[in-house]
């Protein structure tokens, strides 16, 4: 099995994540889709590391995980606070700022 299938898989996962951001309403799910995109990138990083025969890509994947974890902390805090106010986690309800 050539590594390029992993790249393809990663691209598919990334696209799924992007589409998910566009179609899902729940803020938490939207955020999970973003996480899916990040992890799709991790898969390509690791695959490229394998293709290039260097460890850099794998190390980078760790960095990405750490950053993603930090993002979760901040993101969930923000989503929580707006959920407490509006009693709804739908991103379509936050619609006061426009035009």
């Amino acid at each position: 099995m050539t590594p390029s299938y992993y790249l393809l898989l990663s691209a598919v996962l990334f696209s799924l994540g992007a589409v998910g951001v566009l179609v899902r309403r729940n803020a938490v799910v939207v955020f999970m889709c973003v996480e899916l995109m990040l992890n799709a990138v991790n898969l390509s990083l690791v695959t490229f590391a394998r293709i290039n025969g260097s460890l850099d890509g794998q190390v980078m994947a760790f960095f990405v995980m750490v950053v993603a974890a930090a993002e979760v902390v901040v993101g969930l805090a923000i989503i929580m606070s707006i959920f407490r106010t509006r009693r709804s986690a739908s991103v379509d309800d936050s619609n006061l700022l426009k035009y």
């Binding site: 990663s10 990334f14 951001v21 973003v34 990138v41 990083l45 293709i51 890509g57 923000i78």
Partner: peptide, 30 residues
């Protein structure tokens, strides 16, 4: 309310954009 909405929008779109940024990095690494 406006302030919280700004935070949510900024956060979701910012995270979305950094996913693009990161995928770009991965492709360039490749």
């Amino acid at each position: 309310l406006l302030s919280q909405e700004a935070a949510v929008k900024y956060f979701l779109l910012g995270a979305f954009a950094s996913a693009f940024f990161l995928y770009g990095i991965a492709l360039l690494y490749g």
